[in-house]
Write a protein that binds this DNA or RNA. Structure first.
Lengths: 103, 103
DNA sequence: CTCCTATATCAAAATATATTGATATGATAA
DNA sequence: TTATCATATCAATATATTTTGATATAGGAG
């Protein structure tokens, strides 16, 4: 429970969770959407993964991350975050990046 | 929401919340129950208060803290914490301290 | 094989948070 | 008044977390 709250106590990580509400995304999509450096994004993804909030799947060069099922409490937290967090700017950048076929 | 998770991402603060499930407690009760220094306890109480999780009430020399009502999401978090967190040792020390009438 | 791309990891630096010991405040009791 | 108790706050230190820049790894393309 403490690890869960720790994982959620960072703005970047909440933004990642909100982005993943859309479905699986690769690291470069997330990096483009958040406008952050790739090592930074990888760092935060690793913390979310450790806490059991997200999972990854390798496919060729890419690693796709998505929200993991988790228990009822965890899912409730994720739903609440997604409901309350605005992320229009991130979404827009994600769309732009995908149109540009950057990865 | 971020402030809420930040406030909850510390073991001492979760222990305080769990103790306050019992009802209002003064700082010296909490200090005795957790076996921590008074400034440390005051520090963590101030963070919980800032986040809207607890409230305080002055009465003479004492300051009593209790869980604050908050919104539905906040209350759900508090209930979940209290349900999942064991704190037998803290409770025992609280009882002992009260029997000894230390404050 | 060589080059490029996507991602992870590492060490160092930067920043944030927590702890300690000392002191301040304010209420009460003697 | 003076002493004492409960609590808060502060400055200094200690500790934890995050960020950065560099490098490693591994897959695919040419």
């Amino acid at each position: 429970m403490l690890e869960l709250f720790r994982a959620l106590s960072d703005e970047t990580r909440l933004r990642i969770i909100k982005l993943l509400e859309l479905g699986q995304l690769c690291v470069c999509d997330i990096t483009a959407a958040l406008e952050l450096s790739q090592p930074k994004v990888s760092f935060h993804l690793s913390i979310l993964k450790e806490a059991g909030l997200i999972m990854d799947r390798k496919e060729g060069k890419w690693v796709y991350y998505s929200l993991s099922a988790g228990d009822l409490f965890t899912r409730f937290l994720i739903i609440s975050i997604c409901e309350k967090l605005p992320n229009d700017a991130d979404m827009k950048r994600l769309e732009d990046s995908r149109k540009a076929r950057k990865c």
